[in-house]
Design a protein around this nucleic acid. Structure first.
Lengths: 207, 207
DNA sequence: CGCTACCAAGCAAGCGCTTGGTTTGTAAAA
DNA sequence: TTTTACAAACCAAGCGCTTGCTTGGTAGCG
């Protein structure tokens, strides 16, 4: 949770105590539950505990709330990613941490925002999509960097394709993975890693 | 295309020439483009070339159009799947055909309906969701049957988890795969198969 | 004073859907 | 062959409601 408070201080994400933060928080709950289009500004206002008109003192239009949620989601994602790989040495472990980190953002406290980012993508305008894509590129670039640097060591034949298939598997887990099930995130990450490397499940370290 | 006309004759999907079929067809274009919530009954009517009120002569409520699209999508999916595996003998080839068939439904002419099925899921009521899930279960059951019967031969350690990860990878391909790219569906299927079996890409037949 | 945060009221537009009636194709009855 | 019958397909009009957002004003605080 250290990351979050650092990002708040840097002004990259908003303080959940502030009005803006409260609106974002409540909105993300509602958007995740029923979707952006089906959530009215009155729903949001009621959840926050203010009048619907008052929302527009903090956000110019409804879509800006959605954009803010997505923006902050990606920012947290990037920060988590950098922290996960920092200090890790072996290629094998680097990839494992990357997978693990992505699973964490999907199923941890930021999970709601992440699924909104995917599911409500079409509800934001093209210009906002472009802005978010630039942000997201940072994240993807990091993945490709790690994969390419270690492609030989890990015997990866197609970096781009692997990332795409992995991306799908991990995202899709929102639909079935539950934190209280009999598989935990570490086990899931290990399984994905084994699949990606076409190796049997087991050794902690690497040749 | 033989399957489609068979399904039409059996009354399992509607004739694209009929009014009902035309509405479904035009709606699926619009839903895929802007989403269910953002498509108005007036948009649909205009695309079909009738008055908005006339739609309700064929469908009781707007949601029923969406439901019909989804229902027909799953039916085509199931039929394709059965046909794909029929006559195939080796475990290796069976799995390959299953993957190939799923990719075909996602990226072929039924692709639009398939992505609607995934993306607009939350826009249908719970009771309709239940109905569709029963249909979908048929499809999934078929997958598990094939996987379980050949788990030993293919050295699959976790059938359920493999199907889930594969499911994600394949679904996600809507976001990046283009038919006119330099990879075709067969190549993609082969790559996914190699990943699933943790084997290097290459041999047509199996040990 | 001035600034942030908010309220109360409501407007204009758009929404899904209904209504009552008309056209059109088909097929049996005269 | 003409007449009658009838259902399916559609139109024109609009109702009632919800939507995102605006406006003008107020409370609280440094």
């Amino acid at each position: 949770m250290k990351i979050i408070s650092r990002l708040i201080q840097e002004g990259l994400i908003s303080d959940p105590e502030s009005p803006r933060g409260r609106i974002i928080h409540e909105s993300s709950k509602l958007f995740a539950e029923r979707g952006f289009e089906k959530t009215t500004v009155r729903d949001i206002a009621a959840a926050v505990g203010i009048q619907s008109g008052s929302l527009f003192h903090h956000f110019k239009v409804k879509e800006d709330i959605l954009k803010a949620i997505m923006e902050e989601a990606v920012r947290v994602c990037i920060a988590r990613q950098e922290e996960a790989v920092a200090g890790v040495q072996t290629p094998h472990e680097k990839l494992r941490m990357l997978i693990r980190s992505e699973l964490e953002t999907i199923h941890g406290p930021t999970g709601r925002s992440m699924s909104i980012l995917v599911m409500e993508w079409r509800s934001i305008s093209e210009s906002n999509q472009r802005e978010l894509l630039t942000l997201r590129e940072h994240y993807e670039r990091f993945w490709f960097q790690v994969l390419e640097e270690n492609a030989e060591a890990l015997a990866i034949d197609d970096v781009v394709l692997l990332r795409r298939l992995l991306s799908g598997s991990l995202s899709w887990s929102t639909y079935w993975y539950r934190n209280d099930g009999d598989t935990n995130l570490d086990q899931l990450a290990d399984y994905c890693l084994a699949l990606a490397l076409k190796k049997p499940l087991s050794p902690k370290a690497n040749p």
